[in-house]
Every structure is written in structure tokens, then in C-alpha cells.
Amino acid sequence: MAEPIARLDDVSVSFGERVVLKNCSLEVPDGTIMCIIGLSGAGKSTILRLLDGLIKPDSGHVYLHEHDICHMRESQLIEMRTKIGFAFQFAALFDSMTVGENVSLPLREHTTLSEKEIFDIAMHTLDSVGLAHTYHNMPSELSGGMLKRAGFARAVVTNPEIVLYDEPTTGVDPIVTHLLTDTIKRLRKQLNSTAVVISHDLQSIYMMADYVAMLFEGAIIANGTVEDVRKSNNPIVQQFLQGSEVGPIPL
């Protein structure tokens, strides 16, 4: 396994009475695609938010390049987030801006590039996800799959070191799922970055993942290459991968 770029160390998170993560530890190897799988509500998206510093754990540490982001001030977090891209489940594009303005926004706010350079980079990034023609469209004019790809473009436009994808293939047809999976793989290669992907879609995980981690009841119960996890003896992992109603997972 490559050196970790990001790491959760003994992290616990609760929302009110509900314990979401309990002494959870995970390493994200540099330059790979790591997929996190698990039941709905298992806390997968919480892991992404922890890695981006959007929420803080009740206990434990979250490291990015060995810097503990739990103790960073807001100004340090803002600086750190410029190195991280986050593609949200429903894209979360700003609906008062055009697609092009959405993609240009991080460049406009964090760089001193000229308007011409910003336009060129945003257009090039949109082109890399096949959406150059939507630069002047409003997000409401795009289909679900196009919105997700526009979200990818906004997440990667600043060449981040790590890109977090929250359920990128949920709610789209199989062809678009294939297209999105392919886009994630291609972007990782182009940017020479690391990707952490939350997904339920096993086919697309098998297509793109270098490593898979399974989250169950707040802890990682399986972690390794796709083959390692597929061959796991853990009955919970096997029940999840087979999509069976019969097994130790309470329904």
C-alpha cells in the first residue's frame, strides 16, 4: 500500500444521541482511488466531511499530509481546502450562477489569474468532463448526470491533491454511471491526485477502485484491494456484496 495522504485515527462522531463513527481508523493511500462502502446511514459521508474539515470529531484525529486538521483555525482550514476537491451527491452547484461561473469561482477567489486565463482553464476543465457546451447554461438547465459532471469539474478545477466524491453514481442510469466512473478514473490520472469515493454501486466500484473499505456500525470492518474485500471471510461483508437479505446484518 502506498504512503497515506490522509488518515483517520481513532475517530468518534455522534450527532445528538446517535453514534455515527466509533473509534474509526482509516488510511487513504496516495495516488489511488479508495472506495468506501457500507449501509445507508452508516457514516460514509461523515468520513468525507471529516477529511474536508467540514465537521470535527468528538474524539480522535484527522490528518492530511500528517497535519492534524482537527486543531486548525478556520483560516488554516480555508487554506487547506484549496488542496481538496469535493464533489457533492447532488452537485450542489450555486443556482444563481451559470455552470461556467460555478467552475470559475474557486479560481476567481483563490488565484490572481486574469479573466482570460480563468475562462480558458474553466472551459478546459468543463471540456474534460464533456460539458464545454454548457458554460453559459444555468444549473437548472442540466440533467442529473450533467450536473454531477459539472460538480466534478468545479471540484477539480484547482488541481487538488485529493478529490472527495459523495455517491457520484446515485440516481443515474447505467450508461451515465459508466460515464461518471470513467470520468473519475480519468480525472485521477490526469491530475495525478487521490480520490475517495463513497458509493453503493458495486459494479462501478469494481471498475475504478484500487482499495475498498467497508464501514459497519461506525467502524471499518474490511479494508484492502478489491480482491481482498471480495474474498473476505467476514459474513457481514459477504452479505453486503451479495445484496442478500439473509445474514447477520439487521434489516
Binding site: 467540514l54 484549496t82 481538496i84 450542489a92 483563490h110
Partner: peptide, 11 residues
């Protein structure tokens, strides 16, 4: 719609 979180995630 997670746009506020998106703002934060963009720094």
C-alpha cells in the same frame, strides 16, 4: 441543498 457546505469546501 448543500450549497453552503459547497462554499466552505471551496475555501
Amino acid at each position: 441543498t448543500e450549497q453552503i457546505e459547497a462554499l466552505k469546501s471551496l475555501g
